[in-house]
């Protein structure tokens, strides 16, 4: 199969899957439970957004490593695009989570290891953006941000994996440190939409990332033409 054809196929597949998730998520039968009632449908969206954020940011971690190996500016642009995309999905996950928390726990925010971990993670990536904007020289900037990103990613990973396990008392589901992956307690009715939802969100996030990356590349080229019109 030619790569161009493949390009169309996975995007069409993503659209179909996403439509199924939105329609199925809103309309299909869900178990009737106290307290959370119909808000249980949020699991298809909230969890999917966090999954896609982690997925994109992990890809960005790999790009930063490859940048330090090769010093090719392409990898720096790729890493930057992953941070921008990941932050958008992170904020979406935060907003959907806060609305959900308001309806089930009664407040928008609780002092919980998982919630705080997510907030600190987003702060780290915002700090990445600040660091990026405060260095002029592109080669030096790429080097500094790659080093910061790798350092911060590993440290945050250790904290997010270890802290909730130690503190134990978390109101957020998923006690063993991976919220929502313990599918044993997910109703079979919901698995029909939940697994496609995860896949759809991840594919969608990757699509958005490729668009951001291509836009950045085009901007870079326009800049170069403006500087040197020959």
């Amino acid at each position: 199969m030619k790569p161009t054809t493949w390009n169309y196929i996975w995007k069409i597949f993503t659209i179909v899957l996403m439509l199924y998730v939105i329609l199925g998520g809103m309309l299909m039968e869900v178990p009737v439970l106290p307290v959370i009632h119909q808000t249980i449908r949020n699991i298809y969206f909230h969890v999917g957004m966090w999954f896609s954020m982690i997925f994109i940011l992990f890809a960005g971690f790999i790009f930063s490593l490859r940048y330090l190996r090769t010093f090719h500016p392409r990898f720096d642009r790729m890493a930057y695009a992953t941070v921008k995309t990941g932050l958008v999905f992170g904020f979406l996950g935060l907003i959907t989570g806060m609305i959900w928390a308001k309806y089930t726990w009664g407040v928008y925010w609780v002092n919980d290891p998982k919630l705080n971990g997510a907030a600190v993670g987003i702060l780290v990536y915002l700090a990445y953006m600040v660091l990026r904007s405060s260095v002029e020289d592109p080669e030096k900037r790429a080097r500094l941000v790659a080093v910061y990103k790798i350092f911060a990613f590993v440290i945050m990973f250790v904290f997010i994996m270890i802290l909730p396990r130690l503190t134990g008392a978390s109101i957020h589901p998923g006690v063993d440190g991976n919220p929502a992956l313990a599918t044993g307690d997910l109703d079979p009715l919901m698995r029909r939409v939940f697994f496609p939802a995860i896949a759809a969100w991840m594919l969608f996030a990757w699509w958005v990332y490729t668009l951001v990356y291509r836009m950045d590349t085009v901007k870079e080229k326009i800049n170069q033409i403006n500087i040197d019109p020959s």
Binding site: N116, V120, G121, A127, S134, Y148, F151
Partner: peptide
């Protein structure tokens, strides 16, 4: 990292605080 940039106190706080915050809580 911050030492390579001018005006680095703000940057140091911005870059460092999220990383030591979980440690601080612990």
């Amino acid at each position: 990292i911050a030492g390579q940039v001018r005006n680095n106190f703000t940057l140091m706080a911005v870059l460092g605080f999220p990383l030591i915050l979980p440690l601080l809580l612990l």
